[in-house]
Nucleic acid binder design. Structure first.
Length: 270
DNA sequence: TTCCAGGCGTATC
DNA sequence: GATACGCATGGA
């Protein structure tokens, strides 16, 4: 990875990256776009301010950070060790995916914290993005950072009323209970292949196929997890009535992100 | 006002 | 196993 340290800032070069496509695309809910087009957000409790230096050569500034944080946190979080150019070339064997990759060229799959992603996607069900951000914002504000499973061990649906999360509060409580008591562990889910990991997550009340696959893709980096929502159903019926093409094998979830944005553009939602 | 949001649990057949 | 319906909340 190309990077250089300039005082308290670090400049990275990553052409297969665009801030709003990656940070404001419904895979993470804590990044806020600033008036100048930069973004402020965090990995769990480590904040970051990131801006575009020059989009034509794919350079970005990570503000007020250190080389240590870059190598220990942001390199993994932004998945900088993965060559998305190569992934896009592979997926572009299919003509619909080629159009999707050209359109959403700057998407990367963020390697989020497992618990944050799981809890965030429990909150996301039957909900819209501004409200999801609001609920997660209240959670972070209440705890002074993103709460761990231990932090939430004593919560009940009633005590979480301040979130105004509606019927989802009891689902969060069930997830905390199962993980706190060790009936489920983040590690065992991480180590399980997709099918077993999905079954484990779905023992949590309020976690069905969609929430499980989003958590596994964005929080456990299982690139073969393929979240199916109304938009992806539309892609499948319009372009892939006989199933996904062979070039998506093993990276179905990454293909899904490109397709999700492409189909929304085709229907005028972006 | 009514509709809907990157779903899921439950009842019913 | 398929399908219908309710669910908390708040923005559009």
């Amino acid at each position: 990875m190309d990077y250089s340290v300039k005082g308290n800032d670090i400049i990275i070069k990553q052409p297969d990256f665009e801030l709003s496509q990656t940070l404001d695309c419904g895979q993470a809910f804590r990044w806020e776009e600033q008036a100048d087009g930069s973004f402020k957000g965090a990995f769990v409790n480590t904040p970051l301010h990131i801006s575009t230096l020059d989009i034509s050569d794919g350079t970005f500034i990570l503000h007020d950070t250190t080389e240590d944080e870059l190598l220990n946190i942001w390199f993994d979080y932004f998945d900088l060790g993965t060559d998305y150019g190569e992934i896009k070339r592979t997926l572009s064997e299919d003509k619909t995916l080629k159009k999707a990759c050209d359109f959403a060229y700057g998407i990367r799959i963020l390697r989020q914290d497992s618990w944050e992603a799981l809890s965030s996607f429990i909150i996301s069900q039957n909900n819209n993005i501004p409200r999801i951000k609001g609920i997660i914002g209240r959670l972070v504000e209440h705890y002074g950072g993103y709460p761990s499973i231990n932090d939430m061990a004593d919560e009940t649906a009633e005590s979480l009323g301040f979130l105004r999360a509606g019927f989802r509060a009891k689902y969060l409580v069930d997830a905390v209970d199962k993980l706190y008591r060790g009936e489920l562990t983040i590690d065992s889910i991480k180590q399980s292949p997709l099918y077993e990991a999905t079954k484990k997550l779905m023992t949590i009340k309020g976690v069905g196929p969609k929430v499980a696959s989003c958590a596994l893709l964005f929080g456990f980096y299982k690139t073969d997890a393929f979240p199916v929502d109304v938009w992806v159903k539309r892609v499948m019926s319009e372009f892939y009535p006989n199933g996904l093409p062979e070039c998506t094998k093993g990276i179905e979830g990454i293909a899904q992100q490109y397709l999700f944005h492409y189909i929304r553009k085709l229907h005028g939602k972006v």
